[in-house]
Design a protein around this nucleic acid. Structure first.
Lengths: 143, 143
DNA sequence: CCTGAAAATAGAACCGC
DNA sequence: GCGGTTCTATTTTCAGG
């Protein structure tokens, strides 16, 4: 993993649909050479996936929140979250609480419904997102 | 925004580098028709961007954490976070704390350095991520 | 939204370093 | 190992209907 790989990763992180040949143009390499490196980065698992990032608001999801929970049965709770379409992230954390859940949902009503369902798994604390300064800035790739 | 758009979004959310023509094949439309819809979804801001998702671990970022802070000067703190390469997300939240920060960093040492810097902006509470069940599952697109 | 043709791209095979 | 060249199949793009 050298500087060239970092340049490629930076470009792909910024715009995953950029043509391989365009990357080559920007870093002075031929298409096949770039393609070779990209494939290797995918195989090594450095590149996990390529995803379109959608606007939650435009998809009818106006409310985000983080919920802390002291879940009694971790497995059960993780499964519950995995099946909920509103759960974006689920992390096990250190400290007083067991899990931190990121929820993106339609409305305050649907958030409250979810929180209620959660509270059957343990004591919860909800932090509603008032505004997001930035989200998924991406991994910093210093030159 | 109809069912066809939802199908397209689902495919792009899952694999942003899928060829437009391949999408067409999967949903029984021609390439140009799909292309037209994708461009419209981009212009409307439904599709915000396309990003390669990198593995933090493989990029030398082994430690993730969420930090809650009661920041005294919101603007100053937001600017501080914006300049840190380790801050992935920054949200203003309701409740006892002001901000929730998601940090992805090299090591416990670098996390502690960051936490120390944060504590100059207000009272903090750190929740280290022990394991992540899932991250950015993507917005649910029911058929 | 489709067709059809032109331009651009991706991917494979092969060569040289 | 690494990248370059060439070549072909595929994809994208734009015309016009």
């Amino acid at each position: 993993m050298d500087q060239i790989d970092l340049k490629i990763l930076r470009l792909l992180q910024e715009n995953a649909r950029i043509p391989i040949s365009e990357i080559g143009r920007l870093i002075n390499m031929t298409g096949p050479a770039v393609n070779e490196r990209v494939k290797r980065l995918e195989e090594k698992g450095v590149i996990r996936s390529y995803r379109a990032i959608l606007s939650p608001a435009k998809m009818g999801k106006a409310v985000s929140a983080f919920i802390l929970i002291q879940a009694e049965r971790c497995e059960t709770f993780a499964e519950f979250c995995g099946q909920s379409p509103d759960v974006e992230e689920l992390h096990q954390i250190s400290g007083q609480y067991n899990f931190l859940v990121k929820v993106v949902t339609e409305s305050m009503e649907s958030l409250e419904r979810f929180r209620l369902a959660c509270s059957k798994h343990g004591f919860t604390q909800t932090m509603t997102v008032l505004s997001t300064s930035f989200d998924s800035k991406g991994i910093a790739l210093e030159k």
